[in-house]
Design a protein around this nucleic acid. Structure first.
Lengths: 227, 227
DNA sequence: TTACATTATTAGGGTAACCTAACTATTATA
DNA sequence: TATAATAGTTAGGTTACCCTAATAATGTAA
């Protein structure tokens, strides 16, 4: 039996692990994300360990087992399908969809998810470029990586963002950057890694490395040395 | 704070009260409907009384206050809107929609409900003829009443059903009766109240009084003496 | 009207999910 | 490296929601 709370813990662990793959997923991080206190998390982690959804120890943090990853990816799938549906079919703004999808993702009906996934045209990516796992929990292939990993001369296409906060999305709007835009890295300031980006029709854009880390791109230049 | 459980208790009380207005809503009835045991219900009733959603005593049973009725009607509203949306927009069969709507009705987003209500065309009645309360909890006017209250000579139009079980709905399909059909009461057997119904194009239909109690109609005959 | 059956109620418990307070272990820093 | 700050953990408590078993009240039918 998986309750919606268990689903939320597994999703949180998945998200934290993916957000920074170098750092273990700590009880405190989970507590902050789910807005509960650390002892509550510890208690739940023990249960999730017993149910074999995760492993946990202080040094490696919480790690999803394959069983746990399956559940987590299924919720991510449902969340992104609902977000896309709300956005494309029901004309919600992108800043509104997340909160409602947080609720809808726990609706237990495979047929309903299949139906709305059909309606939106079975896409591999949601409108912000995030990949939608398939039913088996496999993520569609893509060469997305942070813009900050680019080198001078890279010609990239914007495929998504890692951060979904309203303030960041508004900032991108101000910079006049949107999904599928093509950007050329004209210069990288060697002191603070600020980027100067060419954007064909417009003035060059100056962007901090902090922002560049949150923008996901794919390099279009053949044989580019970037990774 | 209203949890989805509280919403379910209030909805159950509303439904039981409406199902048989002559009988008080008893803890046992609620327990059976919600598939819990009577002591669980008693406990919850005490809380609902304290929160002023209901009044309760052994003799009158549970009765919704105006505050409680508001909540209950809002859930009924959401339920019927979702059912209609699933049926009309997402092509679910009528027998499938109830279970999914039981979950969806608890999604907390007025904007979402407004949006899907718009999409289905702001109807006053759902596809089975059940009235959809408005935002203020007012039910649309209709002169629906059980077919069993008809007298000989009544000419009625079928507006809905009180019972939604699959077996009953299939039975109506067999009898070739559907929503908006016109029926004429040709005869009422005085022994067991069996009805003989005229149906223009077809052979007369014989119907038990038990079934007639579940069919909701409006009399179309001017100045008919039926009530 | 007594005896049986049903319903309402109370008593006492369990589990899940949350908390605070206190303690321990780790990490960071003066 | 001693000390302070932070993170992890344990102990113990609360509330919501559910239960069974026992008792009290009510209704029914011989």
């Amino acid at each position: 039996m998986k309750t919606y709370r268990e689903e939320n813990y597994l999703k949180a662990i998945y998200q934290l692990a993916n957000h920074d793959k170098t750092k273990p997923v700590s009880p405190t991080d989970i507590a902050n994300l789910l807005e509960v206190k650390p002892p509550t998390v510890l208690e739940k982690l023990a249960i999730l360990v017993k149910k074999e959804y995760i492993s946990y120890n202080k040094f490696d943090g919480a790690k999803l087992t394959s069983k746990g990853k399956e559940v987590a990816l299924n919720i991510v799938r449902r969340h992104r399908i609902w977000e896309t549906y709300l956005y494309k079919q029901l004309k919600f703004s992108w800043s509104e969809v997340h909160e409602i999808a947080e609720q809808l993702e726990h609706i237990n009906s495979d047929k309903l998810i299949d139906r709305i996934y059909d309606v939106i045209g079975n896409p591999d990516f949601d409108p912000h470029g995030d990949p939608i796992p398939n039913k088996q929990g496999k993520l569609p292939k893509s060469d997305r990586r942070p813009l900050s990993q680019s080198i001078k001369g890279c010609k990239c296409v914007v495929l998504g963002v890692s951060e979904h906060s309203e303030v960041f999305l508004n900032y991108l709007t101000e910079l006049n950057i949107s999904l599928n835009d093509k950007l050329t890295v004209e210069q990288i300031n060697s002191y603070d890694d600020t980027l100067k980006l060419g954007n064909k029709t417009k003035e060059p854009i100056l962007m901090s490395s902090k922002a560049a880390q949150q923008i996901l791109v794919q390099c279009l230049k053949p044989n580019c040395a970037c990774r």
